[in-house]
Design a protein around this nucleic acid. Structure first.
Lengths: 337, 337
DNA sequence: TTGTAGGCGTTATCAA
DNA sequence: TTGATAACGCCTACAA
């Protein structure tokens, strides 16, 4: 079996208490003793058992994240980056990251969250893709379970969150398009239940209003955040009698789908149709033509989210419970015409 | 505090033993008692503490996966799908998935693996992006720690693995290109240290040999598995005096980068230059033109890998320690000309 | 079929 | 500055 604290203590002829305290950096242990303990531990390959420590400390030293897998074949590059950020920040703080997945609002989602909460498998949870009247928020708040949200859920409950100003981003994007001479600007949306959809859409409408352009309801189509959804919505919009000259996707994948719809009917993106997205995923730099987008620093956001979560877990007050970052408008050839 | 097994026992006026056994499905407990226990547990919201159970059982009921984050801004869609597969299969088997990340062969990678192994934080580990003479394999084998590899490492040590036949895939791809009249076929490779690179490159060469085409060393360029790497390598290849008429990327991202390099110099992909990749990520269906690729069922592979790993953890023998799947050649317009 | 009791490996309290 | 000892919550021989 693995070497335990008792083995180290026996070897050194000290008590297990001493070993424990020496290793955890308490200051009431003689430096000489500490040095001996540390050396012996390393030599003997002693690493404290996580399970025992958890049991005693009542802390899992882990945080959880549940992927909102909307699709059977799920592969949003956004989440690879997000998870890398979560994992890196957690690791530097000596926490582990548990990842699971569940389709949003599906029954299995509920069990997934409850399992972690009830069994204290994790000390806190990171939420993303916030929804209107999100049951996860209600549930976690009721259980007094630490969590932090990426995105700002609207609702009665106070939620520590970090988000990107989707409305402001969209306003600046619309302004950019108007400046390029566009008046007929369409929007491919996502489910209205999604918080960032509402926010970005609001920015789109406000942007139009600011330019004195009347909102044309037929210029809003709904996708599902995937390329395929964007493609289908794009086809519908481009089949309109008086079709738009610019189309904004609620996210980059959607916009990429729109580009394909355009090129399929021989429309040149950039000169004959402007297309733009939101997220700033790496793909956008490599589409043909490169895609204008609103970049959000996903990796850093993830790290910051973990930082906030750990503070909450430690019981510290957050100096800033609602961090709001500005997305960066990256203008590329897809809106160059 | 959370409700414990003792609370349930007290409530029901039975011993904690009875509660424990009733819940774990032992058959030496009266059905009536079991029913009462189960109902009371649910009503009281009792879920066994993972920490206590782990300590007692000496099992973490968790598996680990460490993302090979080669880039600062890391976002390979391959891994989002892979993680979703790992997480789903683990969850259905009542295991948790721990995710961390580390740059391949960096010192921190070693600590990341060792931490989990030493502290028994996880019961097994899934390995990917196998390398030549992989220290992880040596280390885990030496520690008798359960693991399974995605990809077939060549080496002295017997490694349970699931892989996709990259060589066969590349042979069929080359055959396809030759059939379309191509003779000058280039390859954008990855680090030769990577197992699948060696394998796919071998397939490329074998494919050329089968068609009696001499290998032109200048037709091999090295990328880094990213779109940018592919773009740069593509530019080099296309600047060659007698440039290739077809370029194969060792993975899809690389191929996507090559496409951009081509369109940048006004070469039409499909008619004037054939491009193909490997992986079958969703992007390939939405590039312009859509990209020919070798599809590997990443999600299912991940699930199967977990299945194999759990068998190893349970101490069962694997009926098939080396699963080899065939990639599926998906021919699209990028090689249509 | 049920209950008693010991121990998994730590950390924390208290006394020395 | 160190040590003995009691939990933490659960599982499992063994006894009843």
């Amino acid at each position: 079996m693995a070497v335990t604290i008792r083995d180290v203590a026996k070897q050194l002829h000290v008590s297990i208490t001493t070993v424990s305290r020496a290793l955890d950096g308490y200051d009431d242990v003689a430096e000489a003793t500490r040095a001996r303990v540390i050396r012996a531990s390393r030599e003997m390959g002693y690493v404290p058992s996580r399970a025992a420590r958890e049991l005693r400390r009542k802390r899992a030293e882990a945080i959880g994240f549940i992927l909102p897998t909307s699709q059977p074949r799920f592969a949003d590059p956004f989440f690879a980056e997000f998870i890398a950020g979560l994992g890196d920040e957690a690791a530097t703080r000596h926490f582990d990251l548990l990842v699971s997945s569940a389709p949003p609002n599906h029954v299995t989602e509920r069990t997934a969250y409850e399992r972690w909460v009830q069994s204290r498998r994790v000390d806190g949870i990171v939420l993303t893709w916030m929804r209107r009247n999100d049951w996860r928020v209600r549930h976690l708040a009721k259980e007094h379970f630490p969590f932090v949200a990426f995105g700002h859920p609207r609702g009665a409950i106070e939620v520590p969150s970090i988000g990107v100003d989707g409305a402001a981003g969209m306003r600046s994007l619309v302004a950019h398009l108007v400046e390029r001479g566009h008046q007929r600007i369409a929007f491919v949306a996502a489910s209205p239940d999604l918080g960032f959809q509402a926010e970005r859409y609001r920015g789109y409408r406000d942007g139009l209003a600011a330019a004195n352009i009347a909102l044309d309801e037929s210029f809003t189509a709904e996708g599902d955040l995937t390329r395929t959804g964007g493609y289908q919505a794009g086809k519908r919009l481009l089949a309109l009698p008086n079709r738009p000259t610019a189309i904004i996707g609620v996210n980059d994948l959607t916009a990429i789908g729109v580009m394909r719809a355009a090129s399929e009917i021989g429309l040149r993106v950039g000169s004959e149709l402007a297309v733009a997205g939101f997220d700033g995923i790496e793909d956008t730099a490599h589409t043909d033509p490169p895609l204008t987008t609103l970049n959000q620093p996903v990796y850093d956001i993830a790290r910051q989210a973990v930082g906030m979560l750990l503070k909450i877990i430690e019981g510290e007050a957050l100096s800033e419970p609602h961090v709001l970052l500005q997305p960066e408008l990256i203008i590329r050839q897809s809106t160059a015409g």
